[in-house]
Simulated assay, not measured.
Amino acid sequence: MRRPSTSTIVSLATIIAVLAGTVLTYLLRRPGIQINALDVVLPLIAFGALLLRERYPVAALIVVAVAVAAYYPWARLDGPIIVLPFLAFYTAADRGHLTAAIATGAASLLAMGLGETGGVRHVDDSLFIMIAGWMVAAIAFGGVTRNRRAYLVEARRHALDALHSKEEEARRRASEERLRIARELHDVLGHNISMINVQASAALHGLKKRPEDAEAALKTIKETSGETLRELRTTLGVLRQVDEDAPTAPADSLARVDALVAASGLDVRTELSGPLDTLPTEVDLAAARIVRESLTNVARHSGTTDARLTITHKSGNIVIRVEDDGPGTTYDGGSGFGLQGMRERATALGGTLEAGPRPEGGFRVVARLPLKGAR
């Protein structure tokens, strides 16, 4: 069984109180006063309209006001049904029909005032002012509760919007972090595993003809795989947020560009100009990762072991150029993560990265990273 609403309970309580007051008025009436049909019909009409005030606030207000206005001049009893319009006025204002409530209230007061000019006065000045005050208070209270309810709804909407925005921001940050982690793992693992693959191929090729070269290649594989495991353990340790020893290998830097070139296993002609040991940290790391990834791509896709690396300072930028003359001119970026990661690194610093086949053959990567104003 559904529980009655608060509005219905209030209406029923008001009707019971008015009905009890009307019965008491009947029992205490002066001798000789006989009730008529309006003493019963008009209160019943007002009661029925009051029960419908939530669904039809304006219609209920008008019916209650007319019934009460007709009750006192033409009915024989003076029951307390005067309280019914105040509840109807409050409901109409609370439901947003403020104009209708004010107009009905003004019409009721005007009718009451005109009715008292007929000679016999039923309401003195003080009671008239008190009724007008109650009417204004009922309408004002209904308007206040409506405004407060609207304020609470708006506050709730703003809170939900803020929560939604916060969740969207958290999802965006999580997505960016996943991309960053994927880029870091690709840069580290992709390069080192490529070097392992190149050195393993060299070892297999020269195992019988040049055992000393195979031994050097296997030593390089051992060192590279150890470094890969250390870097992978460090990255996973950060993700798990556990206390582990700090990584022993230094971070990539253009100041150690010779080590980057040597680790690639390629024959690289290097041209450097300008200081490389005073670069901003984020620029230095991004530049070193771009050099490493570019050389890895040469070793993996170009079909040659020769490459050229040029690093220059130009117009407030550090320009990195990696070129090869290999036959792999149709290289499309493989899985796409290598070039995408390099381009994202450059863009994050406000720079640019261009990569593509050279007209004269081979492949070229050119990155421009601003030394100042990095974003």
Rank of each mutant, 00 (worst) to 15 (best):
R2T: 14
V10S: 12
T14E: 05
I15M: 08
I15Y: 10
A17L: 14
L19I: 09
G21W: 03
G21C: 07
V23D: 07
V23Y: 05
L24D: 13
I33H: 13
Q34S: 13
I35E: 02
N36H: 11
N36K: 10
N36M: 08
L44R: 10
I45C: 11
A46L: 12
R55F: 03
V58Y: 05
A59G: 02
A59H: 02
L61T: 07
L61E: 03
I62W: 01
A67S: 00
V68W: 10
A70Y: 02
Y71Q: 00
A75H: 01
R76I: 09
P80T: 05
I81V: 12
P85D: 14
A88W: 04
Y90C: 07
A92G: 08
A93Q: 03
L98V: 12
L98E: 14
A103C: 11
A103E: 15
L109D: 02
L110I: 15
M112I: 08
L114H: 01
G115S: 04
G115C: 02
G118E: 14
G118N: 11
G118I: 13
G118K: 05
V120E: 15
V123Y: 03
D125Q: 11
M135N: 09
A137Q: 09
A138F: 09
I139H: 10
A140G: 06
H158M: 15
E167W: 04
E169M: 12
A174V: 05
S175R: 15
R178Y: 10
L185E: 13
D187G: 08
N192R: 12
I196S: 11
N197L: 13
V198A: 14
Q199G: 04
L204Y: 07
L204I: 03
H205Y: 11
H205P: 03
L207P: 05
L207F: 06
P211S: 04
A214Q: 08
E215W: 10
E227R: 07
L232K: 05
T234C: 13
T234A: 14
Q241L: 04
Q241I: 07
D243Q: 12
E244W: 01
E244F: 04
E244Q: 01
D245Q: 10
D245A: 13
A249Y: 01
A249P: 08
P250M: 04
D252T: 13
V257T: 01
A259E: 15
L260D: 00
V261R: 05
V261C: 11
A263K: 06
R269I: 08
R269E: 15
E271T: 15
E271M: 10
P275E: 07
L276R: 03
L279E: 09
V283Y: 03
V283W: 02
A288G: 02
A288Y: 02
V291E: 01
E293K: 02
S294G: 12
S302K: 14
R308G: 12
T310A: 13
T310V: 14
I311K: 01
T312N: 12
H313E: 08
K314T: 10
S315V: 09
V319N: 06
I320W: 00
I320C: 00
V322M: 00
D324G: 00
D325Y: 00
D325G: 00
G326E: 08
G333R: 00
S335P: 11
F337Y: 11
Q340N: 02
G341W: 04
G341I: 06
G341Q: 06
R343E: 04
R343F: 01
E344D: 15
T347M: 09
A348P: 10
L349Q: 07
G351Q: 04
G356N: 14
G356H: 14
P359E: 06
R364F: 11
V365F: 15
P370C: 09
K372Q: 06
A374D: 02
